[in-house]
Every structure is written in C-alpha cells, then in structure tokens.
Design a protein around this nucleic acid. Structure first.
Lengths: 343, 343
DNA sequence: CGTTTCCATGGAAACGATTCCACGACCACA
DNA sequence: TGTGGTCGTGGAATCGTTTCCATGGAAACG
C-alpha cells in the first residue's frame, strides 16, 4: 500500500499543493505551464486522489447507495444492474448492499452507507420505520424507496401496483375452473408482502372463491419457504388446485417440490408466479407470471433520487403489473381435488 | 442532511473531543462518568461517526471491494452473496461493483474502490493486465482474483479446474454416441474463456471426435450470445448433435432459441452447461451441468484476502469441477445429424 | 508614469476524526 | 513530607484534500 498524495505531485511539478489541487480539479485559474507540469507529474506518479479526504472537504461524494433485500433474487439482481447503469450515466457510482431479507443486515448496511456519506440512498426497505430507516429520514438523507415502502414514512417511492396483476391472475384461474387457490405469501413485514396478500384476499372474495384461511401460507420471499409452502398446502385435507406465489424465488422453491412430488405443473396443479424472470418462459410448461418492469423501476428510482438530492420532492410513482398467461395455469385436473396417490 | 460531529457530542457531554473519541472507540482509559455522559449524548444526538474522517486518520477502512463481471449472472450473484456473508462475519463490509463484462466499467469501479481506500479487493478480472488492474498491483493494494486470473500477474487466486469437468462432459457425450459437439465458448479475453476452450479442444482431440473449427462459436458469456451461438451452429451444413455452453447465461440463451426452433433438448439435441444454477434441475428435461462450488470459492477468496491484508501471501487455490449427468445429455436422435426440417 | 484591475500563486485554515503528549490529581511508598 | 507511578483528561498535531485570503507581478487605464 504505497500512498501517493497531492503533496508528492506538487513537489515533482514544482508548484504548491494549492496549485496542484486547482489543476487537478479543473479550476480555470491556472497557467498553461502549471497545468502541463502538474498533469505530467500526476501521470508519472500514477496519482489517485484520496476520496475520503476530498469528501471531507467537499460536501458530496458522487456516490449513491443501493440496498436490496436479496441479491440472489433475480428481480433484485436486475434492479441492481439497471440502477447502477442509470447512476453511472449521471456520473454517480453505486455502492450495493445486500440485506439478505434480514433487518439487522439492513441496519448494518444503512449505518455503513450513512457513515460513508453517500449522497443518497435507494432502498427496498424491510420492516417498519424503526432502526436505521428512521435515522435516514431524521438526518434528511436523500432517500427513495423502491419496490417496497414503509407505512407512515413520507418518502418518495417507486412501486408496483400489484392489485391489477393479482386480480387478473385470480380471475384467470377462476375462469378456467379453479375454486380453491393456494397463496404462498411474502412476509407481512414488507409492504409488498402485505399489499399482494390483501389483493389476493380481495380478489378471491370478489370472485366468490374459497376464502379458507388454510389456503394461505406465509413465507419469507426466499426459495426455501416456497418449498415449505407447497408442502403445507398439499397436506391439507382439501388441497388447492392452483397456486399463486408472491415472488420468483418462492416460485422456484415451489416448482422444485412439485417436481419431487411428481405433480405435473399445468396438469395436476396450476401455478402462477409474481415477477417475470427470463427463464420462467423456458420451463416446460412455460410459467404464467404477473409481470412488471424492473427496468422502469430502476431508471425512475435513480431519476427521483437525483431530484431529491437536487432539493426537489418528486411525486411517488406506481408502475403497472399485468398477467402473462403461458402454459402453467390451465384448468384443474378432471379428478380434482388432487387425489391422495399423487401426494 | 444535518451533520452531527463528535464536537457536538463532546459539547453535550461536557467533555473534550479527545475524551469523546476515546469513549466512542472503546479506549480503556476513560472514567465511568465520562463514558456514561458521552454514550447518552451520542445516543441522544443519534451520532454516526464520519467514516471518511476516521479512515483519513486510521489506515484501514474495514471494508473490501468486490468486483464481479456481471451481477445478473446467477453464479456471480451467488458469489456476491457468499463473499459478503464471509466478509461480514470477519467484520468487513463489502462494496460491490459490477463490470458488466466491460473493461471500461471495470476500470471505473477499480478507480472508485482505490480512491475509497478499501482495505482489499476481490475481483473477477477482465482483459489483460492493463488499465486499472496494473495500478492495483503497482500500489500493492491487497488483491485476490476469483474465478478468473490474468496472465503474467502474480496475484493469489481461487479458480476452478475446468479441465476435469469439461473432459468428463465431452467423454460422456462421446460415450452416448455424439461425435460432433458444438461448443459455445466464452470470450478469449478472460482466462476462463480460454481455459475452458482449451480443455474442450484437448478433450475432443483425445477422444477422436470431430475437431471441425466451425463447431466452435465465440460468445461473450452473456445470454444473447448463447442464442446467436445456437443460430450459427444450427445453420452449419453438418450441425452438431450436442452442445456445450461455457457458462449459464449463454446456456439460457441457447435453451430459449432451441425452444423457439422447436428442438427438444435431450432428444433432438443434447445440451450441457458449465455452472450449476438452482433451477437448471427444474427444467424438463433437467439440465446436465458441470458443477463447481460457488460457496467454497467465495469463502476461500475472503479468507485469502484477509491473509493478504494481514501481510501474508497465500497460495492460490484451484477448486474441482465435476459433471452432473441429468437428462439433457442423452444419445443423439436416431436420424442424426439433425434433418433440415427441424431447423 | 502612477494607479487600478486582473490573475496565477502559495500559505494557511478547514473538514471530522484519532492519537501523541503533557498536565494535574491522586494514591502509595519510603 | 517528598518522590514516583498511575490514570483520566484536554490541547494540539495529524491524515489529504479543497478553498479562502493575501500577495505580487503584469497588464490596462487615465
């Protein structure tokens, strides 16, 4: 770790640190000679300014934080990608943190991002407004919520209107003949978990389908809980003939168990997932999904964050969702409910 | 953005900054009274130390950088997850950058990480040793290469022995009767791209299979090039009866096009992918893969980086790879080579 | 030619933390 | 009672950079 400072550059160039600094930060008040010698000296020494020191003096760091709830969830991996690209285009570098769907880790990363004085934070929040989320707004750190929100906090957000897509999905399943639809829910500690669950409940009630509370399994948005959910739902005395999973990792977990149990998706049991993942269309049968645009979400989130950083207070945005019917959501098997030998 | 400094804490607690600093950083030389008042003052003000200022004075930042080549590649998303968890367990926070398989972006992120004075960097490098990679070793910044290496640079690395797995895959395909195997290669600008291609070439030669250079398509490790590769290979006058894709995104691209063309994987054409992704086993037919442990890779990379940071110079590690035979790699269709009506 | 304006420059202060050093209080021991 | 050691504390230096301010020389104006 060899440290080269602006002092070394100034000494080699034969000017003062002040002049060197001016040249390197592109101040106009410099002579051509000074400029030339400083630039060559910096190049020769392979000088990199110390961002810490610079940030200490300036007030901004040209960096933003992005805190996602689970990098392994392809939805958030894609989100990370689009946010990063949009930020880069605006001259910001993105520091990515992964809460891993755990509140302690979310707090830990928020602390780190606050400490590192990022200019703003895009976060898919977890839990209520306690812990570090509260510090964020208390200190007026520019923040934008993405995908999820937190009740009672007045923070600009870009989210998805889950209601439409879920209603379409339930209606579609009802139309092809399902009456008992199992729902693998996200955690109620997240706004998306709550909203999607509420949308499902309303849709099922409105369409006169079974409102049996046993048909709902509460997972945690990660794959393993999707598997557990399928287990639980299929053990019911009257198991569902169709399943709706509230996100893609839980859908993956569900599919794995359905395979293991020898149930054929789209024939023995219908399945629809929230979130469209590239390869869901490659499954056989191709998975019907509720789709929403992660590109728009990431792009808009960055745009809004830059507005907040610039002192504005943008309106929250709600993006649409829609059902994409593929092959996994056909009519119930003739002998439904599923006979025990399948289970 | 309200800034609360240690001065405010010291003032409220009625002690000097020096004492406040000592209390907050857990120095033993403090009185119980000072400790009490400083701690309550800090809590009351919701004080967060400025990491920049701290890092300026100390020499280390308790943070490492992780630069992956593509977050959307599940292999790297998993790697990010394991590296992050391992680092967190050791008290380090991970700043994740995404090169998006592009050298300029890699350089940009390396600059940023160097400027932010991370204590060390884990990188899946791209290209030759030019650009910012060279600065890295020139300034003796603790660095560990992961998954990939750069020729001529003496940097500890943890990589996979692709040779064994690829040889097994080719041998397996030969054993079930394939003689013309198409290979969708990674870019030759990466060590994994080169190594896997070389392993394939050797295996094909050793087993007396077709060495037709037309059977190799050079992609870029991203999904779109997998699709292009399948197109190109199937347009050949004598198309292959089996395909080997050098990573999972290209395999996904390949599968999508095979579906579109109406070719049944495992019947009309065999397919094996390098990298095992959770849901590859959920495809129908389940995908045969060359598997290697991303958990081990991430964990070992962090362990090695911490050794380098501590002044050690650990030996590079090469992890094994092995073929997992599932259903996508069966014997060639009776009428092989594939008759034109399929194409 | 004298005075004002302009401009490149260097010295020094500032950013917010840590840490060295000196100081005073206290206790213990001779 | 005097000396030495321990211990908590505050002042000040320090990290690397930016930026304010003063300075001095050159150019421009009357």
């Amino acid at each position: 770790m060899v440290a080269i400072t602006i002092k070394d550059v100034a000494a080699l160039a034969g000017v003062s640190v002040a002049t060197a600094s001016r040249v390197l930060s592109g101040s106009p008040a410099t002579s051509p000679e000074a400029r030339a010698s400083v630039v060559t000296a910096a190049a020769q020494l392979d000088y990199r300014p110390n961002a810490q020191a610079r940030a200490l003096r300036r007030t901004h760091t040209e960096s933003i934080g992005l805190l996602v709830s689970d990098v392994r969830n392809p939805f958030f991996a894609d989100l990370a990608h689009t946010v990063e690209q949009a930020a880069l285009a605006a001259g910001y570098v993105t520091l990515l943190g992964n809460a891993n769907e755990r509140k302690e880790q979310q707090d830990r990363y928020l602390e780190t991002l606050i400490s590192r004085r990022v200019d703003g934070i895009v976060v898919a929040p977890l839990g209520d407004g306690s812990g570090s989320i509260r510090s964020l707004i208390k200190r007026r750190i520019p923040t934008v919520f993405v995908d999820r929100t937190v009740d009672g906090l007045d923070v600009p957000s870009v989210t998805t209107d889950s209601e439409t897509g879920i209603r379409q999905a339930v209606a579609h399943l009802a139309a092809v003949g399902h009456t008992r639809i199992g729902y693998i829910s996200g955690p109620q500690a997240t706004s998306t978990g709550r909203d999607r669950f509420a949308a499902f409940t309303r849709a099922v009630a409105d369409l006169g389908l079974s409102q049996d509370p046993e048909l709902v399994y509460f997972g945690d948005f990660q794959a393993a809980s999707g598997s557990l959910g399928v287990h639980a739902l299929l053990e019911l005395r009257r198991p569902p003939t169709a399943l709706l999973a509230a996100d893609s990792p839980m859908a993956v977990g569900a599919i794995a168990i359905l395979h293991k149990r020898g149930l054929r998706i789209g024939r023995d049991i219908a399945l629809i997932a929230f979130d469209d993942i590239e390869w869901f269309a490659l499954l056989d049968p191709a998975l019907s999904v509720i789709s929403h645009s992660v590109e728009d979400m990431g792009r808009i989130a960055v745009k809004m964050l830059l507005e907040v950083i610039g002192g504005g207070s943008p309106e929250s945005v709600v993006l649409p969702s829609e059902l994409l019917i593929r092959e996994s959501s056909s009519a119930p098997a003739p002998g439904a409910p599923i006979s025990p030998e399948f289970v």
